[in-house]
Write a protein that binds this DNA or RNA. Structure first.
Length: 908
RNA sequence: GGGCCGUUAGCUCAGCGGUAGAGCGUCCGCCUUACACGCGGAAUGUCGUGGGUUCGAAUCCCUCACGGCCCACCA
């Protein structure tokens, strides 16, 4: 069989199997089999904002690897696909689109806007799911879910209702993070922090003309601020109660410059006397700390000077109303005149919107919140009890710290794209609400209902005049339900019973709090169990120089382009082999070529095996079970031992979510052991006359290759499927697909002795090859070699001289030479010397240099041995086996040193 | 201000208590009948600093330096 091309061409192969798997519904998961053994993953649903990027490629490849691995292990597996509606992010994309048409969402109106959103997201979904299929993802396509489809809307309503009834959801007037560009409140977890260079402005607030105030009082005091524009909304100045500088001022009034107001000086322990001037201007409506000071000093009141549109309100004074925050700042600073005492440079951390990057404005607003304390406690307890683990473990502390310091979760968003809050207000009770922004309306009484209620429990009106709360829920609210909403919760079903809780969640650390923690809390609250027992956290794919990839930096690598160029398997391998648990990964396109080369190596080694098989597979195929151990040569026992070890290693690593290590182990085995040594040695018998020996080699080649392909399949699904199909008949496999085939390994081929012996032979080959290369012996020239040395090694080489001859390109090995023949070079390996007569060819100067270098290495090694063995403590305290090892090493090196010395003396 | 993670060959990274490794790159030689996306060979490391534990430390502990990340209301 030689139909395989010389160079692997991934395109047709990938297309073929992707289609075949899909057609056969290969990855359909039924709630059947041993529940205990199930392995279930729900996809972190990508936002429907466009196409998948390389981070998605890594994330989904890792999941696919785990799913395929566990499937290979014979477990029932289920991987649920789906997308997230993406709330603000998606709405922003659409608003940008509208902008190019010179329209806003308000021009369209809510319903028309949502209609467009639905059309757009539908398109996006199919792009994304297509890309996942292209990546080879073993998803159960029949289970595709969307956070805003009907079933998930039922889950969202059920969750809201449950939390409401339990008193865990409330509408409150609180300080919230307001994005003036997106026009909505955000949760704390949705903020980014950024260090910015700014100024610290020192402003004098003069004393008010108070008859009781002394001379000092009229000077007032100086406050330091990074936000002068907010002074228009100041309602107090706070100082530390113990600050001696300001004792006389506490309780006195100050004139607030640029305004008609007088504000009091209050004492508050939250003030840090060492910062700035030790006096803080207090703007309760626009600063979280100041808000809290107001709570402690209610008499100071508050004044909102920045509106929800980011512009100054009339409250800020006629001169400033309507200005942007930035313009107001400039104007305030300019208007202060002599009141501005000093301006200094200052670095400070500002909060920005994670979706659009705008500066966040802390604002007082009416919003919906989830009470988090009890939910977080349950999640903490589950984590502490080991019911939920993070991998790598180092994320545990940040995770539990976050839960420990949790604040209530603001879940209402003033946007249109999302699940509208299922709360209705009676227009009889609240006649004027339709015309006002809801975040400004206090004390609303609402009815929680999926549909418009027909009577009001309060005023008993049966008119049915209700309007629904216009806000939508945080997109992460529906994502938090994902691990059970995808199985139809709150409906009871066989799916939900069988698949929940899921097994692992694979994600990047950037959404640990936004998503992972909230799923844990919601799962525990609504399902009574953790949604998954382990969260596998991977790093971020960065560019070559370690920078985050971003469109604006122009350093993005498009997964589709890479798959086109190098093949999906190569792309996947290159991602996975660098994905060391929890670590970010600098990724360069060049790294894919190595993976492509590996694919080609797999391809060609399989080609080689197939070329050496008869057209017709023997009855039952080539099996290892039929091989008598006595028929096996050293190389056979060695490769089987190495094979078993590699398989075991890969399996252990996969099971521990260390996919990189698994891939690495298989790569090293297949290339460095199987191809470089076994295949070369196999040629001896494959081209030889012994029919039985040939069959033995064939069986080993077929089985070792098949087994390795199986363990490689999770990482490189396409090429391994293709080769499995070509080989399975020869392997006596019945399974139609590689995923259903029996798991390899555990067949008892471990053989330390074979490994030790083969290692010695390999060392001999290595020494001879090095000698050839270093003395520039023409590659075509076959050599005749004489051996000398210790008995066991000599016997080994003699016994396996065919190995040494082919691999080192020798004509003949003549045993037991007495002395070194003249005009010969010497290769040293273990306790053996190989004399290579090279009359006329040999360059003695080169040979001398070569041996002298080797002698130098030996001296260094001997030095170490001697130092250790002359250390009494080492002899008495180190384990005996270790001491013996060093003794043996010393003996060996001494012998080698003597041999080199002898050769050098006689060299001519 | 807390916490976490790095610092190993020119580059990117494994190794994490017993003679320093891989890939890429570099150099030398090869179209050796599976593969030039290949084969053979070679060069290259005070394993960030300083201490400690140990018979023995790249590996464990502490100090510091540098880099990165996460969290935090310093106006």
């Amino acid at each position: 069989m030689t139909s395989l091309e010389k160079v692997y061409d991934p395109k047709p192969v990938e297309a073929k199997w992707a289609a075949a798997w899909r057609e056969r519904r290969m990855f359909r998961a039924e709630p059947k089999g041993e529940r205990k053994k199930r392995f279930v993953i729900v996809i972190p649903p990508p936002n429907v904002t466009g196409a998948l990027h390389i981070g998605h490629a890594l994330n989904n490849t890792l999941q696919d690897v785990l799913i395929r691995f566990h499937r290979l292990e014979g477990q029932p597996t289920c991987w649920v696909p789906g997308c997230d509606h993406g709330g603000i992010a998606t709405q922003n994309v659409m608003e940008k689109q509208l902008k190019t048409e010179k329209k806003s969402r308000f021009d369209l109106g809510r319903e028309a806007f949502l209609e467009r959103m639905r059309a757009w997201t539908k398109e996006c979904k199919s792009t994304i799911l297509g890309q996942l299929a292209r990546l080879g993802c073993a998803l159960d396509w029949d289970r595709e879910s969307f956070t805003m489809d009907e079933a998930r809307a039922r889950s969202v309503y059920a969750a809201f209702e449950h939390l409401w009834k339990k008193g865990l959801i409330y509408r409150g007037h609180r300080m919230v993070n307001w994005c003036v560009r997106c026009g909505t409140a955000l949760s704390d977890a949705e903020l980014e922090r950024e260090d910015r260079k700014t100024k610290l402005w020192h402003i004098r607030y003069p004393g008010a003309p108070d008859p009781g105030a002394g001379a000092d009082g009229s000077e007032g005091l100086i406050v330091a601020t990074t936000r002068p524009e907010t002074m228009l909304g100041d309602t107090a100045v706070a100082v530390h109660p113990d600050d001696s500088r300001y004792q006389g001022l506490i309780g006195k009034k100050l004139k607030l410059p640029l305004t008609p107001y007088e504000i009091p000086v209050v004492a508050d322990a939250a003030v840090d006397s060492s910062f700035g001037t030790g006096a803080v201007k207090v703007t309760p409506a626009h600063d979280v700390n100041d808000f809290e000071i107001w709570q402690r000093h209610p008499e100071i009141g508050q004044r909102q000077v920045i509106g929800f549109d980011g512009r100054m309100t009339p409250e800020a004074g006629a001169a400033y109303a309507g200005l942007s925050r930035e313009a107001a700042r400039d104007k305030v600073v300019a208007d202060l005149g002599e009141g501005l005492v000093k301006t200094e440079d200052h670095a400070n951390a500002v909060q920005t919107c994670y979706r659009c990057g705008s500066l966040i404005e802390p604002m007082l607003a009416w919003q919906w919140f989830v009470k988090m304390e009890s939910l977080a406690k349950a999640a903490l307890a589950a984590h502490e009890a080991g019911r939920f683990k993070l991998s790598p473990e180092s994320w545990s502390k940040p995770y539990s710290d976050w839960l420990l310091n949790i604040k209530d979760w603001c879940i209402s968003r003033q946007i249109w794209w999302g699940h509208q809050i299922p709360v209705w207000y009676c227009l009889e009770c609240h006649p004027d609400i339709a015309t006002k922004p809801f975040q400004t309306i206090p004390d609303l009484k609402g009815v929680v209902s999926k549909t418009k209620p027909n009577h009001c429990p309060d005023c008993k009106s049966r008119k049915g005049d209700f309007i629904q709360d216009p806000d939508v829920l945080d997109t992460w609210f529906s994502s938090a339900l994902w691990p059970f909403s995808v199985f139809g919760w709150p409906e009871k079903s066989a799916d939900l019973d069988f698949f929940y809780p899921t097994s692992v969640l694979v994600t990047g650390y950037e959404i640990l709090y936004l998503w992972v923690a909230r799923m844990q809390m919601m799962g525990l609250e609504l399902m009574g169990d953790v949604p998954f027992h382990t969260c596998v956290i991977h790093g971020i794919v960065r560019d070559k120089s370690g920078k985050k990839m971003s469109k604006s930096l122009g350093n993005v690598i498009d997964p589709l382009v890479m798959m086109d160029k190098y093949g999906t398997d190569a792309f996947r391998f290159s991602l996975v082999v660098q994905a060391h648990p929890g670590k970010d990964m600098p990724f360069a396109e060049e790294s894919i070529t190595g993976a492509r080369n590996f694919g080609n190596k797999i391809w060609n080694s399989s080609r080689f095996v197939l070329m050496n098989l008869p057209d017709q597979a023997p009855e039952g195929g080539y099996r290892l079970s039929g091989l008598g151990r006595s028929k096996l040569e050293l190389a056979d026992r060695w490769i089987l031992a190495e094979y078993e070890q590699a398989i075991e290693m890969a399996r252990v690593r996969y099971a521990a979510y260390d996919v990189a290590a698994a891939a690495d182990a298989l790569y090293a085995f297949l290339w460095d052991k199987f191809c470089d040594w076994y295949v070369e040695l196999a040629k001896l018998r494959l081209t030889g006359p012994d029919g039985e020996a040939k069959e033995t080699v064939r069986a080993i080649l077929v089985q070792v290759l098949l087994g390795t392909l199986k363990l490689l399949h999770p990482v490189m699904p396409f090429i391994t499927e293709e080769l499995y199909q070509a080989l399975k008949g020869y392997g006596g496999e019945d399974a139609p697909w590689i995923l259903g085939s029996p798991r390899p390994g555990g067949e008892g081929w471990k053989d330390e002795q074979a490994v030790a012996r083969m290692t010695r032979v390999m060392e001999a080959v290595g020494a001879l090859r090095a000698l050839r290369a270093q003395l520039n012996v023409p590659p075509g020239l076959k050599l005749r070699v004489l051996t000398a040395g210790d008995g066991e090694g000599l016997r080994l080489v003699e016994e396996h001289q065919e190995y040494v001859k082919t691999l080192a390109r020798l004509d003949a090995i003549d045993g037991a030479a007495g002395a070194r023949p003249p005009h010969s070079a010497t290769a040293l390996a273990g306790g053996l010397s190989f004399y290579v007569p090279l009359e006329g060819v040999i360059d003695f100067a080169k040979e001398r240099a070569r041996l002298e270098k080797e002698a130098k290495d030996v001296v260094a090694q001997l030095e170490r041995c001697r130092a250790q063995l002359s250390n009494q403590n080492f002899l008495s305290r180190a384990p005996k086996s270790e001491v013996d090892t060093i003794r043996q090493r010393q003996t060996d090196f001494e012998a080698k040193q003597n041999r080199i010395r002898e050769i050098l003396e006689n060299l001519s």
